[in-house]
């Protein structure tokens, strides 16, 4: 079963999948992402069904300003790339590189999250409260759930980075980092649809 005899303590080509635990984690996490796809689809569908329900509150074209969204998109996209660098460093056996790139990813994530909070704050001052209209509720729920995912991801990666700051790469922590990076990419996948469907279509249509 687990007997793909790992040559002890030397770096395998895919350290995240070198043990049965690692392979289980890898597979289970992908399946979880499959479920998350439906989770976000439900939120997108709700938003799209309700986005016309503006009533007397502000609507998408009163609120959205593209430059901010563009900057947020670029930040998140770049953080996706830095997490790719982290994994490449891991496979090269460069543990320090892994840690550094992950910290960069976290920093970019924090910047994104800060901008998102600023954005919500702005909208609130334009008169878009959470309970103002069905559009408002569904917008905040969709984008907010994404934001919550970003926040959770940051907390998760920081925990890993602090816990494993001195241990070096092991067969136990390699899958953990790898899976956290998968999660981070998925956050970016969702964001691609958010900026396209919510912001660009809201602004243009």
């Amino acid at each position: 079963m687990a007997d793909q005899t790992v040559n002890q303590h030397t770096l395998p080509p895919n350290p995240e999948k070198a043990t049965l635990e690692g392979r289980n984690k890898f597979l289970g996490f992908w399946f979880f992402l499959g479920g998350e796809t439906v989770l976000f689809a439900s939120l997108f569908g709700t938003y799209l069904g309700l986005r016309g329900g503006v009533v007397s509150g502000p609507g998408p074209d009163d609120l959205f300003h593209l430059p901010l969204v563009f900057i947020m998109t670029m930040i998140l996209l770049t953080s996706s790339l830095t997490s790719v660098f982290a994994i490449i460093s891991m496979k090269r056996g460069n543990y320090k590189g892994l840690l550094v790139w992950m910290w960069v990813t976290v920093a970019l994530g924090l910047a994104f999250l800060g901008l998102e909070i600023y954005e919500f704050y702005e909208y609130y001052h334009y008169g878009l409260g959470f309970t103002t209209s069905a559009f408002a509720s569904s917008f905040y729920t969709l984008v907010g759930t994404h934001g919550a995912h970003v926040a959770f991801g940051i907390g998760w990666i920081v925990t890993l980075l602090i816990r494993y700051r001195k241990t070096g790469l092991t067969l136990t922590n390699a899958p953990k980092f790898y899976v956290a990076v998968l999660y981070w990419h998925f956050i970016d996948v969702v964001w691609v649809f958010i900026f396209s469907v919510v912001y660009l279509m809201g602004y243009g249509g």
């Binding site: 309700l50 329900g53 503006v54 009533v55 309970t131 209209s133 069905a134 509720s137 569904s138 729920t141």
Partner: peptide
């Protein structure tokens, strides 16, 4: 207000 018709 997702399900409140008077709020859209």
């Amino acid at each position: 207000t997702y399900f409140a018709v008077d709020f859209g």
